[in-house]
Design a protein around this nucleic acid. Structure first.
Lengths: 154, 154
DNA sequence: CCCAGATAATCAGGACACTGAGCATCTCTC
DNA sequence: GAGAGATGCTCAGTGTCCTGATTATCTGGG
């Protein structure tokens, strides 16, 4: 009676986009390491010694998810986890030799995959595409932590 | 040493986009019904009496995931599941009165949410955005089932 | 010094999302 | 009509994702 066309729903399309990416990642990059796991490795290459929460912030994962991802990476000996002697609540994270090697290897493959993934778009469209996604995500993200809680008392 | 800028990675951005959408959906549409669940309801409004596999195909969910989603919707009495008398393997699915009501209610809220979600973009950008996502997803999806398996024997 | 609030991590519980394996049913062919 | 292959569904296992509650630790005020 009143069904909607889901192709005009950005949320639905976002889900499909991620599935498409998952598929391509699995065939072109790795069946062992997932895309979020690579993001964590990458964050620790950029800034070794970060704590869990901060890594999560860098790659966009909440406290629970980042804990799980890190536990898997630790189990596979791709990163080390040490109590911060300065602050007993924190764990300091850093890649192992194996983690570094893995990151290097996957970086190359990831670049190739991104090319294939975006190949249906022209060069200008690709740039625009990335920019549009980012603007939409950033805006919605902003709604989560209202920077200024809107003064509404006289 | 060689960390990558994830903002140029469409996969990473796709994940962030979906998280942003999840957040907005949760606050503006429903905390009970998820976006994939709404997609299933919507598919059954359009075509009542579909079987599980076909619904999954319509909304982009694999056989296992669609089974779980349907089991949740059935548990909440939003849809009915009946053995196909013509084909004992199939279950025929159709919305209950409650399911129809829920779909109607959420359709309105979803439209509002989509507006907010896309509001950082101009009207032209919005159209373009949806089109670009779809083109990328469709292309990657196409790699899954090669329509013509490329004859390579002389 | 001690306690209250903030902060890092864990745990429990729920919802997607995929693959591979297995079961029931249908269908096609001989 | 009996076996072979295809097809719809379920189940087991893994990996994101989220929220709410709990635990351990730190910090600041009295």
């Amino acid at each position: 009676m009143a069904a909607v066309d889901l192709t005009s729903h950005p949320g639905h399309l976002a889900r499909r986009l991620q599935q498409a990416h998952y598929l391509l990642w699995n065939t072109m990059v790795s069946e062992e390491i997932t895309s979020p796991q690579f993001a964590v490795l990458n964050a620790l290459v950029a800034e070794p010694g970060l704590d869990q929460r901060t890594v999560g912030e860098r790659v966009g994962l909440d406290r629970s998810t980042i804990a799980e991802v890190i536990s898997r990476l630790t189990r596979r000996a791709l990163l080390d986890k040490v109590r911060d002697p300065q602050d007993g609540r924190r764990f300091l994270l850093a890649l192992t030799e194996d983690g570094l090697r893995t990151h290097r290897k996957l970086t190359v493959r990831t670049a190739r995959m991104n090319q294939v993934f975006l190949s249906p778009l022209s060069a200008e469209e690709q740039t625009l595409f990335l920019e549009l996604i980012q603007r939409v995500s950033d805006a919605a993200e902003g709604l989560r932590n209202p920077a200024e809680p809107l003064v509404d008392q006289g």
